[in-house]
Each structure stands twice: as C-alpha cells, then as structure tokens.
Amino acid sequence: MTDNKILRELIYQLADDNFIHSYRGSEWLGLVPHIEEDVAYSSITQDTMGHAYMFYKLLEEMGEGNSDELAHARKPKDFRNAILLEEKNGTGTYLDNPDYDWAFTVVRNLFYNVYKETQLESLKQSSYEPLSITARKIETEQYYHLMHWKTWFMQLMQSTEEARTRMENAIRRVWKDFGGVISQGRYADEFSARKYIEPEEVLGQRCLDKLGELCKSVDFNLEGKPGMEKGNGRNGEHTEDLKQALETLSEVYFSDAEASSW
C-alpha cells in the first residue's frame, strides 16, 4: 500500500469516530437529565461534529472527494469508527419512545474522551503536518469535554446506590467493546512505522492507565483487558446500529438526486 493510502486509513478512523460519536450525542437533545446539561452536551456534540469536519476536510485535501460525500455517501463497510461509538443510546429512536441510558452515555463519553485525549497528544507529533496542526486545534476544546465527563463520572459514582449500580453496569458494558476504540486496525504497524501516530500498544496502555487511575479514585477496579466482542470497526466490521445511523444522517442528502446544493 502507498503511504497515502495508509495515511487515509488513519484519518478515516479519526473522522468517522467523531462523526458517529457526535450523532449519538445529538440524539440526546431535549432528553438529558436537566436543561443545563442540554446546553452543555449539545455544545460538546457540536464541537465534536466540528472535529469530524476538520478530519473529513483533510481527506478532501488529499483527493478523497468532497467532504460531504465522504460523510454521507459511503457504505457502512467503508466506515472505520469503533463499534462502541456506533452503539445506540438505548431502545427506541431519538424521535419515538427513546429509552436512553444516561449511565452508559456518561461512561462511553468518558472512556472515549480519555482515549481521544491520548490520541491527540500523540497526533500533535505526527509526521504528517496537517494532522498535527488539526490535533492542536482540537485539543483546546477537548480539555473541556473531558472535564465535563469526568465530573459526571465522579459524581454519579459517589452518590446513590442506584446510580453506583447503573454506572458499574455501564462500565462493564463499555469495557466489552472498548478494545475496538484502542485498536488501530489492520494497518496499525504501518501507521507507527511512518510516525503518523504512536504504536497501538503504547497509546492503548497510556489510555488504560489513565482510566485505571480514574476508576481507582472512586474505588472501582478495571479488571483484565478491554474486549472487542462485536468486532473491529477499524477493519470495516460494523453492526446494524451503524447502518441505521447512516440512513438517518444521510436521509436529506439522498432525498433529491437533482439537488446541486443545500
């Protein structure tokens, strides 16, 4: 594979992670526990979509095609996001009988954002300069996002018994597929050989150490290695949840073949 193709594989992972993660966040609009959180979470979701946009733009500049087409018109098998991030927030849809799990959302957001922070720190040193510039831009917002989810995590872990039980269940659930977030997919060795990003094992361990410490501070032990039960999204393996998400995200985009702009 050419250098260019390898590099694009990595940037698709970054773009698709942020795109899908932002989508799951936007489904919570109007449904979160209180109005102040609605203001905060929808701001984070918007930032995250902005991050996806920056990564898709990098791909566009590399000749991959129009960024809107990349976001809206690819097949699920071409997506490179982690499966954990495509998982539904709960049963129902965002418009019809949503039964969403706030504990799962807090834990998924926290765990992913700890990884994202680790990832961005590494990307700042990337041999591909546009990537390191983008990582620096994102990092300023990332700091606040992470702080937000840490606050939720710490508070819910140290409150009522019910909240503790829900949170522990959510951690176990997220843990089952968190391996797919850390994975860099089948080209991992090529990424680090070209110094686009540090090796999967190094970043992964750094992220797990941070998470281990966070959990320990609220008397919870993360045991064993995180799993990848539903498959590896980095290699194009996905679930029905992604297919449905993409149908929603591109519904208007595909609604009129004649439309030249929106």
Partner: peptide
C-alpha cells in the same frame, strides 16, 4: 433535523442554533 441536515456545514449550523435556543 439536526442529524438529518444535508451537509456537514448545515449540520454544524443547526446544532449551533438549537443549542442557542436551549
């Protein structure tokens, strides 16, 4: 229409708008 907005720019704009309203 937030997730369904037809382009990345439109998605960002409507997200910002609805966030303002809240």
């Amino acid at each position: 229409w937030v997730p369904k907005a037809p382009t990345l720019h439109r998605k960002l704009a409507i997200m910002a708008k609805v966030q303002d309203e809240v």
